[in-house]
Amino acid sequence: MNGHPVSCTKCSTPLPETFLNTAGLGECPGCGARVKAEVFPALLRRAEAGPSGERILAEGEAACFYHPQKRAAIPCGVCGRFLCALCDVELNGQHLCPACLEAGRSKGKMTHLETRRMLYDSAALCTAVLAFVIWPLTIMTAPLAIYFAILSWYRPSSIVPRTRIRSYLAILVALLQLAGWVAFFAVTYFGSFKA
């Protein structure tokens, strides 16, 4: 997309330069929608060809683990395998091989590569609160909500700032539900006993 003009997002008509980095909106020449674009130097930057790795010229030179014909440039920061310039993936100043990168991503060890997280505190709160809709279910959902709330302390939460208020609320609601059930069974049992 480098070099391509900045286009209207409604009709894809290229926007004239009078629409770029202006304070107000202008009417798109194609569809008449009021539009503006804030452009940055990356728009003018040409995509550079990536390194392909140098061939081994002399016998005995260290070779890439994945490409035996390529000269090793750097070891992997995790497994230590020799990597050529093609296999070297730099992430946050660390040089990794594609296998370690994939392993780190799939095990959730690299926050920068994570695309999804389960929110156990929200799950706990929803389980505790939504069960009120069908209240007899609370006898089962209350322990489940407490389990989720405790789990949320040991599992990674959201990567953006977040408090633990949901876990505490979930535990409070679930304990109240359990207390209600205990009271219900106590009244039922002792009531029938007296009768």
Partner: peptide, 8 residues
């Protein structure tokens, strides 16, 4: 990021 396009 190359551009941010805003359309009313």
């Amino acid at each position: 990021i190359q551009a941010i396009i805003v359309r009313q």
